[in-house]
Structure formats: structure tokens, C-alpha cells
């Protein structure tokens, strides 16, 4: 099992808490970093002035679309346009069922698009399947030539 970090980009603390609970419930013990908006997510990945980014890329990014400051699609665009994160697996995890969000998300290179169910039992199932698939089933891309240091 991939032991990498999970980057959860989620502004709603309830959703974040429920997601964490679901992971825990299904024995997904990887570190989960929660970024509450796009700016935080980008800071974690690429660092800011004076602060270096994460030493290692996360195994998976769970990205909400509607975020304060910098929205999810913009974050995705930055991730795909940077050589270091170009291949990073990104799963859009959102409430939106709008066609244009689906089209935009996939166009910008999302690896998957999951709609958050309201029903917590279903939500639990989705979280479990996401974790199992991306951390266990899926083969991660090779690390970029110059890993973040």
C-alpha cells in the first residue's frame, strides 16, 4: 500500500471531518493534510516565499472545486502546468453535478471526478473506494527527476 500523504483540499470542516472519519473507519492510515483553500493547497505543493513546499509529493490530491480565494480548477491548472506535479494523481471530490464542471475538470487533466453523496453511508463507501483504489490498486507515476527538496 502506498504510504504517501493524502492532500485533502476542502474548505468545509464538516466534510473534512467526515472524510477523515471515513478513512479511519476503513483503516486508511496514511497522513492526511487538509488545505482549507486553494492558496493553502498551492503553498503546500509549491511552497511560498520563505517557506519551502512539502518535501515529498502527496500520493493523491482530493480536490474540492468551490474554494475560497483560488478555486479548485485553478489549483488543478497550476498542478498540471508545473513540471514537478504534472503527473500527480488528482481526484475532484465535489458537490457539483454541473456538466461544465465535469468537462472543465477532465479537460484540465483530473484523473477522476467523484460527486459527494449526501447520504453518509454512500459517502463512506465512496471514501473507502477512493482510498483503496488510489492507494492500493493504482500504480503511482514515477517520482519527477528533481523531487521537491
Amino acid at each position: 500500500m502506498n504510504s504517501g500523504t493524502i492532500l485533502l483540499v476542502e474548505d468545509n470542516p464538516d466534510d473534512a471531518a467526515l472524510t477523515l472519519r471515513a478513512f479511519k473507519h476503513h483503516n486508511i492510515t496514511n497522513d492526511v493534510v487538509v488545505a482549507q483553500d486553494g492558496v493553502e493547497a498551492l503553498a503546500y505543493l509549491f511552497g511560498t516565499e520563505g517557506n519551502a513546499g512539502a518535501k515529498q509529493l502527496p500520493a493523491i490530491v482530493l480536490l474540492d472545486l468551490k474554494l475560497p480565494k483560488v478555486n479548485g480548477l485553478e489549483v488543478l491548472q497550476r498542478i498540471r502546468s508545473d513540471e514537478r506535479t504534472r503527473l500527480l494523481p488528482v481526484v475532484i471530490l465535489t458537490s457539483s453535478d454541473e456538466e461544465h464542471d465535469l468537462i472543465d475538470g477532465y479537460s484540465l487533466g483530473a484523473n477522476s471526478y467523484v460527486r459527494k453523496p449526501v447520504d453518509f453511508v454512500e459517502f463512506n463507501q465512496a471514501a473507502k473506494q477512493l482510498g483503496l483504489y488510489w492507494l492500493l490498486v493504482n500504480r503511482a507515476p514515477p517520482a519527477p527527476p528533481e523531487a521537491l527538496t
Binding site: 468545509n12 464538516d14 466534510d15 467526515l18 458537490s95 457539483s96 453535478d97 454541473e98 449526501v118 459517502f123
Partner: peptide, 10 residues
């Protein structure tokens, strides 16, 4: 779709 569903989910 986004904001009204979130509290329901909570």
C-alpha cells in the same frame, strides 16, 4: 447544488 448540499451532508 454545492452550498445547500454541504450542510445536508453534515
Amino acid at each position: 447544488s454545492h452550498d445547500l448540499r454541504a450542510p445536508l451532508r453534515s
